[in-house]
């Protein structure tokens, strides 16, 4: 089937097998920030935004994103995204880095919808992301620091 999707603001037309998952399409097309981890919706390494909502691309069929906007970690360029990247590096929230694009997408999604989250809300937003290196303490710290400085709509 033919689908049209808007990946990182760019219109893309694809001929796809309808039973293929979005993760496989994205990697084939070179969006390598989207990682294949568990492929069961558990680890969050393949997290993307679909129409602004964080979803695991391994549990979505390509046919389901026809006409929708998909954003991967490499498509996050605004000030919020850059602040998150900088802060993750500064506080030492990254070790092997495999989970980080997915964690960034989840953090970005959280702060876009809720610029002033509590620690519990940060934990809830990351509950679909597994990190086996650093744990979550530094990631939570980084998100808190960005939230504190972020001129979000509610501040």
């Amino acid at each position: 089937m033919k689908i049209t999707t808007y990946i990182n603001d760019e219109r893309k037309d694809f001929q796809v097998e309808p039973g293929e998952v979005l993760l496989d399409l994205l990697r084939r097309e070179g969006y390598t920030s989207v990682k294949e981890g568990c492929k069961t919706g558990d680890c969050g390494a393949c997290m993307v935004l679909v129409n602004g909502r964080a979803m695991t691309s391994c549990t979505l069929f390509v046919s389901q994103v026809d006409g929708k906007k998909v954003r991967t970690s490499e498509g996050l360029h605004d000030e919020l995204a850059e602040n998150l990247r900088k802060e993750f590096v500064e506080v030492g929230a990254i070790q092997c880095g495999f989970c980080i694009p997915g964690v960034l997408v989840s953090s970005y999604s959280l702060l876009t919808h809720n610029p002033d989250p509590t620690e519990e809300e940060i934990k809830a937003a990351l509950d679909g992301n597994l990190c086996r290196c650093t744990g979550y303490v530094k990631q939570i710290e980084a998100i808190k620091n960005v939230a504190r400085d972020f001129e979000g709509v509610s501040k």
Binding site: G41, M47, R53, A54, T56, T59, L60, S106, G128
Partner: peptide, 9 residues
């Protein structure tokens, strides 16, 4: 139920 991304879908 599950996690935020799973509940979103």
């Amino acid at each position: 139920v599950g996690s935020y991304p799973i509940r979103n879908a």
